[in-house]
Measured scan of single mutants.
Amino acid sequence: EINATPKGWSCHWDRDHRRYFYVNEQSGESQWEFPDGEEEEEES
């Protein structure tokens, strides 16, 4: 699962919740759901 993350994302293990979470390396935002690989940036 770690190697399957889309480009620009990293996968980390949360010991407290015993599950993986994903970090967007560009924005620093994290989420529980597996990233779909589409950038959802809304910068103007």
Results as ranks from 00 to 15, higher is better:
Pro35Leu: 01
Pro35Cys: 01
Glu41Lys: 11
Asp16Leu: 04
Asp36His: 10
Asp16Asn: 06
Tyr20Met: 08
Asp16Pro: 00
Asp36Met: 10
Glu42Gly: 15
Tyr20Arg: 07
Ser27Pro: 00
Tyr22Asn: 10
Glu43Val: 14
Asn3Met: 15
Ser30Met: 14
Arg19Asn: 03
Ser10Ala: 05
Glu25Asn: 05
His17Gly: 06
Glu42Gln: 11
Gly37Thr: 12
Gly8Asn: 05
Ser44Arg: 13
Asp16Ser: 07
Arg15Tyr: 06
Cys11Gly: 14
Gln26His: 07
Tyr22Ser: 05
Glu1Met: 12
Cys11Lys: 12
Glu42Ala: 14
His17Thr: 12
Glu38Gln: 14
Tyr20Trp: 14
Tyr20Cys: 08
Asn24Met: 00
Ser27Leu: 01
Asp16Trp: 07
Glu29Thr: 07
Asn24Cys: 07
Gln26Asn: 08
Trp13Pro: 04
Ser10Arg: 07
Glu25Met: 07
Glu25Asp: 15
Asp14Ala: 03
Glu42Tyr: 09
Thr5Val: 14
Tyr22Thr: 04
Trp32Met: 07
Glu43Lys: 13
Asp36Gly: 14
Asn24Asp: 05
Trp32Pro: 07
Glu41Leu: 10
Asn3Cys: 06
Phe34Arg: 14
His12Tyr: 07
Trp9Ala: 02
Glu39Arg: 11
Asp14Gly: 00
Ser10Phe: 04
Arg18Val: 04
Glu43Leu: 10
Arg18Pro: 02
Ser30Phe: 11
Arg15Trp: 06
Glu39Thr: 15
Arg18Thr: 05
Ile2Trp: 06
His12Asn: 06
Glu25Lys: 15
Ser30Gly: 12
Asn3Tyr: 11
Ser30Arg: 15
Glu25Thr: 09
Ser27Cys: 01
Glu42Leu: 10
Gln26Ser: 11
Ser44His: 12
Asp36Glu: 09
Tyr20Leu: 06
Arg19Trp: 00
Gln26Val: 08
Gln31Asp: 00
Thr5Asp: 04
Tyr22Trp: 13
Gln26Met: 07
Trp9Ser: 05
Trp32Tyr: 09
Asp36Arg: 12
Glu42Thr: 13
Ile2Ser: 15
Val23Lys: 14
Asp36Lys: 10
Arg19Thr: 02
Ser44Gln: 15
Gly28Met: 02
Trp13Gln: 03
Glu41Thr: 12
Ser44Gly: 15
Glu43Gly: 13
Asp36Asn: 07
Ser10Glu: 05
Phe34Gly: 05
Glu38His: 08
His17Pro: 00
Asn24Ile: 00
Ser10Trp: 00
Gly37Arg: 07
Gln26Ala: 13
Asp36Trp: 07
Glu33Phe: 03
Gly8Ala: 01
Glu25Ala: 08
Val23Pro: 01
Pro6Ser: 04
Glu40Asn: 11
Asp36Pro: 12
Glu43Phe: 15
Arg19Leu: 04
His12Met: 03
Ser27Asp: 03
Ser10Tyr: 03
Ser27Thr: 13
Glu40Met: 09
Tyr20Asp: 02
Ser27Gly: 04
Phe34Gln: 13
Glu33Asn: 13
His17Ser: 12
Glu39Gly: 11
Pro6Gly: 02
Glu40Thr: 15
Tyr20Pro: 09
Val23Thr: 15
Trp13Met: 03
Asp14Phe: 01
Phe34Ala: 11
Gln31Ala: 05
His12Glu: 11
Glu41Ser: 09
Glu29Gln: 12
Glu33Gly: 09
Asn24Thr: 02
Asn3Lys: 15
Asp16Phe: 05
Ser27Lys: 03
Glu41Cys: 13
Val23Glu: 07
Glu41Pro: 13
Ile2Ala: 03
Asp14Arg: 00
Trp32Cys: 06
Trp32Ala: 07
Gly28Val: 00
Glu41Asp: 06
Glu43Asn: 10
Asp14Tyr: 00
Gly37His: 12
Val23Ala: 05
Trp32Ile: 13
Glu38Thr: 12
Thr5Trp: 08
Trp9Ile: 01
Asn3Gln: 14
Glu38Asp: 11
Gln26Gly: 08
Cys11Arg: 06
Arg15Thr: 09
Gly28Ile: 00
Glu42Ser: 13
Asn24Glu: 05
Ala4Thr: 12
His12Cys: 06
Asp14Ser: 09
